[in-house]
């Protein structure tokens, strides 16, 4: 299709070559090793590796806590995106900038900082522990770390969509007698839904792969507070390469699925945008 039309700008073959060389050497070949290695395991040992009790327990921790942390991010991220794009208040620019902190801050730094903050003697932990909330070296600790790392994704996905909303539609709703509450739920919220889901999926995808910030605050108790990436690292440290590869294969497939869902969601939001025009 594209070959028939003459390209005006030069450099197609050069840039295509560079791009594909990088992707092949750095992404496709390495990723294919995981699948080829896994298929070499044989179905039975593969199944045994990915369903051993320690691994199953880590799935529950990783996916359960990631689900809750991303839900928290969706809620607070929505409020933050709304406030930052619609209201002006002192310190607006600062708060808007600081949203990206979890994205720019190395995960190891975030990990030790959150641990210091939420452990028994920490600034926040000292108030939570007397209430019976063990906020470090526990599932709650993992939840805190995963909430931290996923936060920018929801805000940054929603913000441009909220800023792009057509105020006239809201005015029309209001002039037809709808309350502000009704306008929000019937007009504004449905058009933000694809972006909200996308942000949620991005935060979730980031959370299930997260390693650096979690291992410091989680306590890493086998069967209880071990996340799946840590299980993979432990397999590697014990030279159990087969088990590590099998579990990594499961996580990769799930990451790919989430990526596909995100793409479908973006397609959906484009469709909504077209329907409006």
């Amino acid at each position: 299709m594209s070959n028939k039309r003459q390209r005006i700008l030069p450099g197609f073959h050069l840039t295509l070559g560079i791009c594909l060389t990088y992707l092949t050497l750095l992404v496709f070949i390495p990723l294919s090793t995981i699948f080829i290695r896994s298929s070499g395991l044989g179905w039975e040992s593969f199944w045994r590796a990915i369903t051993s009790p320690q691994v199953i327990a880590s799935y529950k921790v990783t996916f359960g806590i990631s689900f809750l942390a991303s839900l928290t991010n969706a809620f607070f991220g929505f409020i933050a995106a709304w406030v930052l794009s619609r209201y002006r208040f002192p310190g607006h620019g600062f708060f808007d900038s600081i949203v990206d902190l979890p994205f720019a801050l190395p995960t190891a730094v975030a990990g030790i900082s959150l641990t210091a903050l939420y452990s028994q003697n920490g600034w926040i932990g000292q108030f939570l522990y007397p209430l019976g909330i063990k906020s470090a070296y526990s599932l709650i600790g993992i939840y805190i770390a995963l909430t931290f790392v996923g936060f920018p994704f929801v805000v940054r996905t929603l913000q441009p969509v909220i800023e792009g909303l057509d105020r006239e539609i809201e005015e029309a709703g209001a002039s037809l007698g709808a309350s502000r509450w009704k306008v929000f739920w019937k007009i504004v919220f449905p058009s933000l839904l694809p972006a909200l889901f996308t942000g949620y999926a991005l935060a979730f995808a980031r959370a299930i792969g997260e390693y650096g910030s979690v291992i410091f605050i989680s306590g890493n108790m086998p069967m209880r507070t071990e996340i799946t990436p840590l299980v993979i690292v432990k397999f590697l440290e014990n030279y159990q390469y087969q088990q590590a590869t099998a579990v990594a294969c499961v996580m990769l497939v799930i990451s790919f699925l989430i990526l596909l869902i995100i793409n479908a969601l973006q397609h959906w939001s484009v469709l909504i945008g077209q329907a409006k025009n």
Partner: peptide, 10 residues
């Protein structure tokens, strides 16, 4: 989308 741990493993 790939976990950094898996990236290392690759």
């Amino acid at each position: 989308a790939v976990s950094p741990v898996i990236a290392g493993l690759l």
